[in-house]
Amino acid sequence: MASSHDADATGITRRKSLAAIAGAGALGLAGCTQSGDGGDGGDELSGPINIAGSSTVFPLMSAVMEDFANEHPGVDPDISSTGSGGGFSNFFCTGDTDFNNASRPIQPEEEELCAENGVEFVELIAATDALTVVVNPDADFVDSLTTEELAQIWEADPAQTWDEVRDEFPNEEINRFGAADTSGTYDYFIEAILEERGHTSDYQATEQDNTIAQGVAGDQYAIGYFGFAYYSQNPDQLKALGIDDGDGPVEPSLETASSGEYIPLSRPLFTYPSIESLGEEHIAEFARYFVEQTTNEELVAGDVGYVPATEETQEEQMSILEDAIEQAQG
């Protein structure tokens, strides 16, 4: 503060210079302020998206979410892998999630639960999966099974040894690895193969495909079933069986599933947006984005391992979705 030295001569007093410094400081600080509401405004999409449900749909949905989150920095999506049934009964039908993924259609009791809580929804087809029956690569005796033989292995009162299923099979115990009963894969397997014969409880039940794969890979006489994605990523680890529904055995693959040859185990995968949630713009936009992505060959088939939807299906789904959005945003 040299100014105080010759204050009289120049008219600059200590007080004045202090005031000037304070003023400059205040101006400087003003550039470093923020407002209290912290909002980032604008018409950029923002808000949370909560999704739960099927572990089969999880990789597909989570891949789509990742891309959507990268495109819209304001959107905060999260996803839980709870199993189709667990997601409906614990989270979706109680109004806590915006979407529920399912590897089978919603069941009547779940619809009732949703109705009780006033949760309305629409059904969208996400992709097609080829439910794959696998055995150990060393199991040379079997390459395909008929649907009847498959039912004998998995029904409520199942065959205990392989030779009970077909005479030329070895007299060895069958070790079963399958989906847990909270899983949509379990429900779909019953619907497609077992029907009223019921599912055996004499098996290793799990939500983790990895556990099924490890179990089957470590046991020459084991059998298991899960979604196609796991098999398509690890084709050498396990052997997929052809399924014979009366027209000769058909191996599971993206081609046979999309052409409709791989029956009865090719199944549609679903996601169920809640109509109330579609009233929020960022969720509606995400639903549209998801339906657009269902025909994306590279994402659905390449990254995840499911059969992409056809253009026709996509158009149908989009119009169902637009109707629902209109109803919600009315």
Binding site: N50, S62, E66, A69, D76, P77, D78, S80, F91
Partner: peptide, 15 residues
């Protein structure tokens, strides 16, 4: 009901 996967860090105690 904690999420399996989130893409953004939580920004409040209630997120």
């Amino acid at each position: 009901g904690a999420a399996t996967t989130v893409f953004r860090a939580p920004d409040s105690l209630f997120s």
